[in-house]
């Protein structure tokens, strides 16, 4: 939090857009609202005094349109925070770990899914000492395999599906 305000005070952004963070944020919301508007355009609206299924989504979409435009306009006219840098490493590996879990849990079972997604997620940080990480990964996998299927009785299958047949 304090970082952003520090930046904003440190170098007031020159140029047409005075608060890029708000400007682009607001614009994205406008785009989202337009998309929602388009996506709900085929739903029936008000009939007589009864709301149709399309009424509320369109109502909220138009509200979001106005508000997003407002945010973008504020960003255009008043000085504000610059865009923050996006890092790639963290988001990439964490997302990859989540996806790997989602795609391996059914066919390959909990042991492989949990351990592999732990190791993939670990790549997101530059500070790993891999021996240590490996040990923690094994320990946590073992813990999960005890906690969820046994202690909590949730329907998890531990081994890969092909090993069960």
């Amino acid at each position: 939090m304090s970082e952003t305000t520090g930046h904003a005070q440190g170098n007031p952004k020159k140029g047409l857009i005075r608060g890029p963070q708000d400007f682009w944020g607001g614009l994205a919301l406008v785009a989202l609202a337009l998309f929602a508007f388009y996506a709900s355009s085929d739903l029936p609206g008000i009939r007589g005094f009864q709301f149709g299924p399309g009424t509320a989504p369109r109502l909220f979409a138009s509200l979001l349109l106005v508000l997003g435009a407002g945010v973008a306009l504020t960003g255009l006219l008043t000085p504000g925070a610059p865009l923050e840098r996006y890092h790639l490493r963290g988001p990439f590996f964490v997302t990859l770990a989540i996806l790997s879990f989602a795609f391996t849990i059914r066919p390959l079972g909990l042991i492989i899914a949990a351990f592999s997604s732990f190791m993939i997620a670990a790549f997101g940080s530059t500070e790993q000492r891999w021996g240590q990480t490996l040990i923690v990964g094994i320990a946590i996998t073992a813990f999960c395999c005890f906690l969820f299927p046994y202690a909590l009785g949730l329907p998890f299958q531990l081994q890969p599906r092909f090993m069960l047949q």
């Binding site: 770990a97 989602a102 909990l110 997101g124 790993q128 990480t133 923690v136 990964g137 946590i140 999960c144």
Partner: peptide, 16 residues
């Protein structure tokens, strides 16, 4: 750096 991968898999298992 050891904590967050654990949180990731706990979250994933929880949601699943």
């Amino acid at each position: 750096h050891l904590l967050y991968p654990c949180i990731v898999i706990f979250c994933a298992i929880g949601i699943y």
